[in-house]
Design a protein around this nucleic acid. Structure first.
Lengths: 247, 247
DNA sequence: CGAGACGTTGACCTCCTTCAAGAGAAGTGG
DNA sequence: CCACTTCTCTTGAAGGAGGTCAACGTCTCG
C-alpha cells in the first residue's frame, strides 16, 4: 500500500516489497482523533511518536498571555516527534486540525525496523534532517522576511511538502485550516494574513478557488519571492551512503 | 581531560574513564581558524560535522538583499551539524566569531563511538534533541515575542548553554560578539538591540560591566520574562533508557 | 594622533497590530 | 423554508513597535 510515509521514503531510497510491508506495519493499529482535539499538551509525558496517516495536525507553543506560535504543521506521512525516545517530556502541544488517523510509534518499532534494514534507518534519518532544514527555513522566514514573503513562504512550504506525499499537484492543493493557523505559523495577526493573501491574489501569485482550495497561479514568481525554497526539496540519499549500507 | 563536550555529556549520562577517552579522541587533530573566517558557505558540499573545542561561531542564512538571520550561535562543545552524514550540502553558512579551535567529525567517527558504547550514542542523540528544542524555542521567541523579551531570551539561552559547558557562572558570562550578531539572531535591527539592552540595564535585569562581559542582575525576573526557558535545560537521560542500553 | 569598529541616541517613517464593523457561508431550530 | 446564530474572512481607520537615517561618543589599535 502506498501510504504517505512510503511515498516520501521512496524519494530517498529505492524501496523493495519487504521495505514497504515493514513501513506499513510501523506503529501498529491506527487510531482516530476528531478535529480540534489535543493529542499532547506542553509539559506532558510522552512515550511514543505520532505517525500521521491522514489529516492535518498542528504543533504549537503558547505563551502565558495566549500568544501562540505554530512550530510546524504536521501532514500525512510525518512522524512527530522522533526525539521523544530520549526526551520524554513534550515542550509543545499537538492538536488535530482535521479528523485525524494516526499511529503511535515506539522506540522499539523504530529500532526493529532499523535493525532489519540500515538503509531504511538512514532514510528515516534523512527525513528527520529534512524536517530540521524546514524548521531552519521557517526561522529565517519569520525572523527576516516581510509579511508578504512570509505568507508566500508558508504556502510554498505546504505545497512542496504535500507534493512529496502525493497530496498536491502542480496546480495547487487543499489547505484545510483557517487563516489563524497561517497567522500563528508566520508570527502575524490573522487580519494581516487576510490582507496579505488578498494581495497575493491581486498580484496573480496564488488564488483561493474554494473555501479550502488554493491554486498556485505563478509558481516561478512565487519561488523567486520565497528565495529559501531549495532546502525544502527531498533529494535521494547520496549513492555513496546507500552503497556503504548495502554491505 | 574535561573538554566542553565531556562536561555536557556528563550531565546526561555517567561517564567512565573509557568514555571520556573515547570522546576526547572524537574528531582527531584540532584545527584552527581565525576570527571572521568562514568555515562553510551555504550551498557548499560538506562531509564532516564541526566539533568546536574553543571559541564561538555563528550559523546563519542570508537572503539575496543582504538580510541575514543567525540560526544558532555555536559554542564550545557543540557539534555542528550532525545531519551532514545524510545531507551533504549545507543550507547555511558557518563563520568564526572568535579565533576557533575545532575538529572535523566524520560519520565513521560517530559510528565507531556508538558501536563501542550505545549509551554514548543515546547521549549524543539526547544532545541533538536538546538542540532541536533550542531551535524551536528560538522560533517561538522570534515569532511571537516583543523585542524586549526576545533579547532577554537570547541572553538567557546563551547563559544557560554556556553554563552547561562550564563557561558561565551564576553571575554572568563573556559574550565575545557584537550586538549585530544578537540583532540577526533576534530578527531585529542592531539599533533596536542597543536600545533594548539599555532598557534591560536600566530596569536592573542585565548589565554590561566590560566590553564583552555581561552580568545577570536579576535572574528571577529575567526568567519570568523569558517564559520558555524550561526546554533549555539539559536533564539526565531517563534511567529507564540508560538501563535498557546497559544490557 | 587618526582611523576604524562598535555602541548610543534622536527624529522620522513604515509596516504591522489592534479595534471595530460588516459580509459570506454554514449550521440550527422553529 | 426562512430567521438566527456562529464562524471565518474582509476592509477601514487609528495607533504603536520597531526600522531607517544620521550624528556623535568611545574604545582599540596602528
Amino acid at each position: 500500500m502506498l501510504t504517505p510515509l512510503v511515498l516520501k521514503l521512496a524519494r530517498v531510497i529505492e524501496l523493495g516489497e519487504a521495505d514497504i510491508t515493514a513501513l506499513n506495519a510501523l506503529g501498529g493499529a491506527p487510531r482516530r482523533c476528531p478535529a480540534g482535539q489535543s493529542l499532547v499538551e506542553a509539559g506532558e509525558r510522552m512515550n511514543a511518536a505520532f505517525l500521521v496517516h491522514a489529516g492535518w495536525a498542528v504543533r504549537h507553543c503558547s505563551l502565558e498571555d495566549g500568544r501562540r506560535l505554530v512550530l510546524d504543521i504536521v501532514l500525512p506521512g510525518d512522524i512527530c516527534d522522533p526525539t521523544v525516545f530520549v526526551r520524554p517530556r513534550a515542550d509543545f502541544s499537538l492538536q488535530a486540525l482535521t479528523p485525524l488517523s494516526y499511529s503511535l510509534v515506539r522506540s522499539e518499532n523504530i529500532l526493529e525496523l532499523v535493525n532489519r534494514s540500515p538503509r531504511l534507518g538512514a532514510a528515516l534519518w534523512w527525513i528527520e534532517a529534512h524536517e530540521e532544514a524546514i524548521t531552519r527555513a521557517h526561522l529565517v522566514a519569520v525572523g527576516r522576511m516581510s509579511a508578504y514573503e512570509r505568507v508566500a513562504y508558508l504556502l510554498w512550504e505546504l505545497w512542496t511538502r504535500l507534493g512529496l506525499v502525493g497530496l498536491a499537484d502542480d496546480k495547487g492543493f487543499e489547505l484545510p485550516c483557517g487563516q489563524d493557523v497561517i497567522a500563528d505559523a508566520a508570527g502575524l495577526s490573522y487580519v494581516h494574513v487576510s490582507r496579505t493573501l488578498r494581495r497575493l491574489d491581486r498580484e496573480g501569485l496564488v488564488r483561493r478557488h474554494s473555501p479550502h482550495g488554493w491554486r498556485i497561479l505563478d509558481a516561478r514568481r512565487l519561488r523567486e519571492l520565497v528565495q529559501i525554497a531549495d532546502g525544502l526539496r527531498l533529494s535521494p540519499l547520496p549513492r555513496r551512503i546507500q552503497q556503504r549500507l548495502r554491505r
